[in-house]
Amino acid sequence: MTTLSIGKPQMRTRPLWGWTLNDGLVVARRNLIQTVRVPELLFFSLVQPVIFVLLFAYVFGGAIPIPGDDGADAYRQYLMPGIFGQTVAFAAASSTVGLAEDLHKGIIDRFRALPMSPPAVLLGRTFADAARQILVLVVLSITGYIVGWRIDNGILNAIWAYALLLLFAYTVAWVGAWVGLYMPNPETANTAGLVWLFPLTFLSNCFVPINSLPGVLQTFAAWNPISALVLSCRELFGNPTGIQPDYWPLHNPELYTLLSCTTLIAIFATLSVRRYTRATSR
């Protein structure tokens, strides 16, 4: 066959685990290309949080008092880090749906039959889903600025806050990936991928001060990692924080955010990789 003229390929030998980062980036690039090729999806994934900002700022804005701060813009200042936290949490849903689709279409089978590093597909997925949140955070910050939100505590603190938000996005993406690997089809993933995110984000300080929540819910909200994340952001952006009830995570929000994120990544990355190596399309 003259058309297939070039010689036998040279496989570059290195233990497969040594390829993990390389393979992960190859898969991440693929997932990010998908984002660019479906601009409609990207557009609506940006519109949704913007609508949240406008709804909460103008519908609930006047009705929710922030303890310790009664300025006119207090709720909007309080709200924005909450919306940031909620929005990056929903990065998990795209990991769930993305993996469920890859499984369903059989492309995971192809990946698994390649001599590539096993965690790479998941690494690429979670990395791309977290990276996409950078754009989302930019759009949200601009929207926030328009409705009166301000960064009021120095640029370095603000960068640290954004970094924590991306770390959290990456963390929930791993949880989402693990959920996605159990989904029987993409349709189920569309629903199941979201279902746990509503209690996670609403039983927190994202939209209302934790003091207003009753007993058990208050305890849950206080230990909810997203509360610590959002509180950290409020402090780092110099926004009103409300008054914190007496729980350890709320007194050490940045430390708790870092601890809970690293713990959750360790747990869900392990579970997901184990599941992935056994996953089948049917």
Binding site: I6, P9, Q10, M11, R12, R14, W19, N22, D23, V26, V27, R29, R30, R110, F111, L114, P115, M116, A120
Partner: peptide, 12 residues
């Protein structure tokens, strides 16, 4: 993409 994942040289 699949070629890269086989760890073949970019030129190949």
């Amino acid at each position: 993409m699949f070629g890269d994942l086989y760890h073949l040289s970019p030129r190949y």
